[in-house]
């Protein structure tokens, strides 16, 4: 049985687990979406499937969703309070997005009063998936700073994780290098009770559980990395942390949501990074892990260079 089945079937409601067990082990499942009193949605690479119960009955009921949340949080809602405020929890390196009714106070968001939907993103560790990208990134065995860009669900995080492993272990012509990972949501390292669950290489240090920008500042100032890795650049704080790291001679591996360079420039913080030529390479992905183009800081297409 594939790892994701072993991980998820004991946690999910019985009817959902039965449906998943019937899927072939190599099914390219990306997401499991459960909504209260609605059918189940399974998202595959390139397609999705809506699964109803008998007589078009819903697959997941309210009490099953509540029980699922209890299992996902280890019966300890308090331990995930901050994450829940941000609309997600992370279970074994998989991000579980939540939807429902939230409560707002004068100080900000208090949390969910009712959770009506859960979106589980299946994480797979795909070793060597970053290998086709290496000829664009390596220069004399050293990595250039790179921004991986794609719409959600195209495997940026998986690719980034493999790049970290290759850089850290010095594989395929790369010079071994210390990598610091700012892992706000435990998605790169996978949370195994504070330990690193995924293979991120031998020279990798991770700071997780705090904002990416705060983690990046600590990594650069205390762990002296050669490369800083950050998943999903979002705001001005993230952009500032990347600029600071680059200014201190640290290469940066980062990802951002977007369909292309034009999309990215609509986001002020990321646009400013591109204008400042902080990234030496921008790799665009389409579909799951499919590399469409690699450009330099000026937006000019670059060719692969064999090492």
């Amino acid at each position: 049985m594939e790892q994701w089945k072993k991980q998820w079937t004991p946690l999910l409601p019985e009817r959902v687990a039965e449906i998943l067990e019937r899927l072939p082990d190599d099914a390219p499942l990306l997401e499991i979406r459960l909504r209260c009193d609605r059918p189940l949605e399974l998202v595959f690479d390139g397609s999705d499937r809506i699964v109803y119960g008998n007589n078009k009955a819903p697959i997941v009921e309210e009490n099953e969703l509540k029980a699922l949340l209890r299992r996902l949080t280890g019966y300890s809602a308090f331990a995930w309070e901050n994450e829940r405020k941000s609309g997600f929890i992370t279970v074994g390196g998989c991000r579980v997005g939540l939807s429902g009714r939230m409560i707002r106070t004068e100080d900000g968001v208090l949390g969910f009063s009712t959770v009506s939907g859960v979106c589980i993103r299946i994480v797979r560790e795909v070793k060597d998936c970053a290998k086709p990208l290496l000829p664009y990134l390596l220069c004399g065995g050293r990595f250039r700073s790179v921004l991986l860009v794609s719409p959600p669900g195209c495997g940026k995080t998986t690719l980034l994780r493999d790049m970290i492993r290759i850089a850290s272990d010095g594989l395929y012509g790369a010079v071994p290098c210390r990598v610091g990972v700012a892992d706000e949501r435990f998605e790169l390292s996978g949370d195994a009770n504070g330990a690193i669950a995924f293979d991120l290489g031998t020279r990798t240090d991770v700071i997780s559980g705090i904002s990416k920008s705060d983690a990046a500042v600590r990594i650069v100032s205390t762990l002296s990395p050669g490369i800083l890795a950050m998943d999903e650049l979002n705001d001005a704080n993230d952009a500032k942390a990347v600029s600071e790291a680059r200014g201190k001679g640290v290469a940066v591996f980062a990802t951002a949501h977007g369909a292309d360079g034009k999309d990215l420039r609509l986001r002020p913080a990321i646009g400013a990074l591109l204008d400042a030529h902080v990234f030496e390479r921008i790799a665009l992905l389409e579909g799951v892990g499919r590399l469409t183009s690699v450009t330099d800081g000026d937006g000019l297409r670059v060719d692969a260079v064999s090492q």
Partner: peptide, 10 residues
């Protein structure tokens, strides 16, 4: 332990 973020079991 719970104050430092541990789950009930931990």
């Amino acid at each position: 332990r719970t104050a430092s973020g541990a789950t009930l079991a931990d």
